[in-house]
Design a protein around this nucleic acid. Structure first.
Lengths: 222, 222
DNA sequence: ACCTGAACACCGTTCAAGT
DNA sequence: ACCTGAACACCGTTCAAGT
C-alpha cells in the first residue's frame, strides 16, 4: 500500500488509455508513459513487444463504447447502420489509434464483439454465408476507411470545418472552366453538409446495393 | 555544369519521389533528402513550409499513374469503376504518402484531374449536381478509405498475405460457438479471395446503390 | 539571397548492469 | 525476476551565423 505496484499489462494499458483520453493519441509515447507510471520507459518492453502492440490494446479498449445489443423491433438494416455509425464515431474520436486497428484485425475483445454483431445482423437479413462475409468486409472498408479520411477534419472545431468546406467549394468554383468544366459545374455541391451526412449517404447506398446484389446477383457492368 | 544546381521545389520533389520509389515512403526524411541533394536538411525549409507540404506534392506526383481519358464505348459506370480501381492501385503502392492525400483535398494537379474525370462520368450518368457530388464523395471514401485499410497487407508478399488470411479465418472458426455463433458460422468465408476482390465487390455494390438511390430516392430504413 | 551548422526537443528500442 | 540507466540510431524544426 502506498508503494508503487509492480508493473503489469493492465496497469500499463490503463495509464496509456488515460494519457490518450487526456492528451490525445500522439501523447502515448514510451517516455511519457514511463513518467505517468513512475517507471523507466524501457520497463514497458518487458510487458509489450513494442509500442504498436500496446496501441492495439488501447485501441480495442476505446471500442468498448460501441453498443451492439439487439434492440426490440429494430430491422437488421437499421441495426447494421447504427453499429457502423457508432463505430465511426469512436474512430473519429481517436484518429491516431485507429491507424493500428486498420492494418489487420486485432481479434481483441471489443473488435470481436462488433464483428460478431455485424455478422449476426447480416445473417438475420437472410444472406448466405459467403454473402454475409462479403457484405461485412464491404461495410468495414467503408466505415473504417471513411473514418480514416475524416478523422483529421473531425479534430478541428466545427466552425473551422465549415470554413474549410466553404473554401474548398469556392476553390473548385474558380477553376478554369475549359479544363475543369464538371468540377466548376458541381462545385457548389461539393463538401456540402457534414462529413457524417456524407458518410451516412454512402453507407445507405452501400447497404442498398448489397441487398439488391443478394437478391438479383451481381450487376453486369455494360 | 558539373556544379550543384541551386535548390528548387522541382529539384527537391524529384529527389524525394526517387527516394520514395527506391526506399519507400518512410525514407523520405529531411536528413536523407538533404544527403541525396547534397545540401543541409534545413535548406529544405526555405522551399517547403514543412515535410507534410513536400509529401503532399510527392503524393500528387504518384497520382500521375491514374489514367482518366474516356474510352470509346465505355459506359460511365465502367469508367468510374476503372478510375477507382486504378486510384486504389496507386495508393496501395505508396501507403505512407496516401495518409496525407486523405486528410483534405490537396487540389494539386493530378488530384484535380482525377476529381474532374469522376465528376465527368457521374454527370454522364444523368445525375443532378447534388447527386453527382454525393456520389463522388461516396466513391472517394470507399476507394481511398479501403486503400488505407489494405495498404499494410498489400506491402507483404502474396504468399504471406494468403497465409495471414488463412490464419484469421481459422482463428474465427475456433472461437467459442456459445459467445460467437455467427463468427463461427461464417468463418470459412471471411477474408476469402484477395483484398482487391473484396474492394471490387464493395465498389460494385456502392455503384449499384447510388444508381438505385438516384432513380428511386433514398430508401427508408424500416 | 540562400545555405550551413549547431542546437533543441523529441522518438523507439536494446542491453549490460544493478537489486 | 524485474527494472534502471545509458546508449544507439534516429526524427522535424529553428535560427544565428556565414558567404
Amino acid at each position: 500500500m502506498g508503494r508503487p505496484a509492480a508493473l503489469s499489462r493492465e496497469l500499463i494499458v490503463d495509464a496509456a488509455a488515460n494519457l490518450v483520453a487526456e492528451h490525445g493519441a500522439e501523447a502515448m509515447t514510451a517516455r511519457r508513459l514511463g513518467e505517468a507510471l513512475g517507471c523507466d520507459p524501457s520497463a514497458l518492453y518487458r510487458h509489450y513487444a513494442n509500442m504498436d502492440d500496446l496501441q492495439r490494446e488501447v485501441g480495442d479498449r476505446f471500442l468498448a463504447a460501441v453498443h451492439v445489443a439487439p434492440r426490440r423491433g429494430e430491422s437488421w438494416v437499421a441495426a447494421v447502420r447504427r453499429i457502423c455509425v457508432e463505430l465511426r464515431a469512436v474512430q473519429l474520436h481517436q484518429p491516431r489509434l485507429a491507424v493500428l486497428v486498420r492494418a489487420a484485425p486485432t481479434r481483441l475483445a471489443n473488435e470481436l464483439r462488433i464483428t460478431e454483431a455485424l455478422l449476426r445482423e447480416l445473417r438475420r437479413g437472410g444472406f448466405d454465408p459467403a454473402q454475409v462475409a462479403a457484405a461485412y468486409h464491404s461495410l468495414i472498408e467503408l466505415t473504417v476507411g471513411a473514418a480514416a479520411i475524416d478523422a483529421t477534419m473531425a479534430a478541428e472545431p466545427a466552425a473551422a470545418r465549415r470554413r474549410a468546406y466553404r473554401e474548398w467549394r469556392a476553390h473548385y468554383g474558380t477553376l478554369d472552366p475549359a479544363e475543369f468544366p464538371n468540377a466548376v459545374a458541381v462545385a457548389g455541391h461539393l463538401y456540402e453538409g457534414s462529413a457524417d451526412d456524407r458518410f451516412v449517404f454512402a453507407l445507405d447506398a452501400l447497404l442498398l446495393g448489397i441487398r439488391v446484389t443478394a437478391q438479383n446477383g451481381a450487376p453486369s457492368v455494360p
